[in-house]
Design a protein around this nucleic acid. Structure first.
Length: 264
DNA sequence: CTCCTGTCCTGCCGGC
DNA sequence: TGCCGGCAGGACAGGA
């Protein structure tokens, strides 16, 4: 898409989380794409107008790129379509409309409220156990909730938090301030490992929800604890008929899956 | 400031 | 068989 110019913009009537800004289409039309990037869970499309198109997929959002010669049947929940000068199209489809799409001045991106407070990228070299343990200090909230907080580390969601805590052997219930630097280092390694594995496998979409190019994410078949209530965790040596296997609890209104015997 | 709860939205699934 | 309640996810608002 780099180097292509936006020829036309179509938006759905309903908008996403919030309605499209009044000048949304105007600021995109005619703009040339300079860069495509990502920050936390936000997709960033840099334009030659000094603006950046920011997209967020929420949970059910899907961005599909359609080649000029390919036919495309308009989806019921298509909310944004960019048509480029070469006939290529980008479609943002989101049944639950939890996603976002807005234009912001590139130079002011970091002033955007959600961006300003964003924590470190989990895959960046600077994200270390030492840094993490400092961010956890004095915090009484459970580790699960803390890792879901994008201000602590940016880009983890419910599935990967559950998985990383399992591989680190840390209970999701543990008060964050009680995590040692050794444990935090183990957790950082686990987070990086889980994310790299998921990326390699093509994401973790559940059920019929698919990933960027329309193909399903296959990582869910490799998940250790998420959505595996009552099952044995990988390498489990306990008698699950007696222990009940992987446990599911609610934290912050979300499901947490963990092994109470191997995560302390 | 931290922590916690409720809200948004739609489709799917389980239970009656 | 059909209907309906509950649940899933990420961000954020607002109250304690």
């Amino acid at each position: 898409m780099k180097g292509r110019r936006v020829a036309a913009v179509h938006t759905g009537a309903k908008g996403l989380r919030s309605p499209f800004a009044r000048d949304f289409k105007r600021r995109l039309t005619g703009a040339k794409v300079l860069s495509c990037g990502r920050r936390a869970k936000y997709l960033l499309i840099g334009l030659d107008t000094g603006d950046t198109l920011v997209l967020h997929l929420g949970m059910s959002g899907r961005v599909t790129i359609i080649d000029p010669d390919k036919s495309y049947k308009k989806g019921r929940h298509d909310h944004l379509t960019l048509i480029f000068d070469n006939g290529c199209r980008i479609v943002l489809n989101d049944p639950r409309r939890f996603g976002m799409a807005f234009v912001e001045q590139t130079a002011r991106l970091n002033d955007y409220p959600a961006f300003r407070v964003l924590g470190p990228e989990p895959l960046a070299p600077g994200f270390t156990g030492k840094k993490l343990v400092a961010a956890l200090a004095e915090r009484s909230a459970p580790m699960k909730n803390i890792l879901m907080d994008q201000r602590i580390v940016a880009g983890l969601g419910n599935i990967y938090v559950c998985e990383a805590l399992f591989y680190a052997g840390i209970s999701p219930l543990r008060p964050a301030g009680q995590v040692s630097v050794v444990e935090a280092s183990r957790l950082v390694s686990a987070i990086k490992k889980v994310l790299r594995a998921a990326l390699k496998a093509g994401g973790s979409s559940l059920r019929d929800y698919r990933h960027a190019d329309g193909s399903p994410g296959y990582f869910q078949t490799k998940l250790a604890v998420y959505d595996r209530e009552g099952q044995a965790c990988p390498g489990c040596r306990c008698d699950i008929s007696r222990t009940g296997g992987i446990r599911r609890i609610a934290q912050g209104g979300r499901s947490t899956f963990y092994c109470p015997r191997r995560q302390t």
